[in-house]
Nucleic acid binder design. Structure first.
Length: 153
DNA sequence: GCCAACGTTGGC
DNA sequence: GCCAACGTTGGC
C-alpha cells in the first residue's frame, strides 16, 4: 500500500520540469535540513506518490506528481564543503541527513495555488495550509490526496 | 535544561 | 524586500 507525501521545492532551484528533464529519469531529493522533514523522508517507500509543490513562486502551489524510486540514503551534499547544504557536523560514519530518489509521473493541467487549496474543506488539516508551518516534506492522507487529484481534474 | 539571539522559510 | 513564525545554537 503506497503512502502519499508532499515535497516542497523552490522552482528556481529545482522544479517539476527539472525532474521531468532529468537525463537518467531520476532526481535526487537532497538538501533537506530539518529533522522532522528528514524523518518523513526516511519513512518514504518505493512506489509512494508525491505531490510536487513549488514554494517561493508566483503563485506557489502544487504542480504535479512524482514517485519514490529509492528509499532514504545519506544525502551526499552534507559531506561536500562546496555545497550550500554542507554540514560540517556530518561525517560518512555518522550522517545526519537523508535523500531519496524520485521520478517524474505527471504535471497537472494547471497549478493548484494555495488559494485554490484553501477552498477545499477536506484539506483544512494539511500542514501546508497552516499559518507558520514551514515543513518541506509532509505526509498526505488518502482523503487529501483524492481531493487534490479531484481538484487537478 | 533554559532561553535569548540568530538564521531560515516562505507567503505576500 | 518585508516580516511573522519557527527551528537551532550556545552561553550560562
Amino acid at each position: 500500500m503506497s503512502a502519499y507525501w508532499l515535497f516542497k521545492s523552490e522552482p528556481d532551484v529545482y522544479s517539476l520540469d527539472s525532474l521531468r528533464l532529468e537525463k537518467s529519469g531520476v532526481g535526487r531529493w537532497d538538501g533537506v535540513r530539518n529533522y522532522q522533514a528528514r524523518n518523513f523522508l526516511r519513512a518514504a517507500q518505493v512506489g509512494d506518490q508525491v505531490l510536487f509543490y513549488h514554494s517561493n513562486a508566483a503563485p506557489s502551489g502544487i504542480v504535479g506528481i512524482a514517485e519514490i524510486v529509492r528509499t532514504a540514503y545519506p544525502d551526499p551534499t552534507q559531506f561536500d564543503p562546496a555545497s550550500e547544504y554542507y554540514d560540517p557536523k556530518a561525517t560518512p560514519d555518522a550522517p545526519r541527513w537523508s535523500a531519496v530518489d524520485v521520478r517524474f509521473v505527471r504535471a497537472f493541467p494547471r497549478l493548484l495555488s494555495l488559494e485554490d487549496l484553501r477552498q477545499v474543506p477536506a484539506l483544512d488539516a494539511m500542514p501546508l495550509l497552516k499559518r507558520g508551518t514551514r515543513l518541506s516534506v509532509m505526509p498526505v492522507t488518502p482523503t487529501e490526496w483524492a481531493a487534490i487529484l479531484d481538484l487537478a481534474g
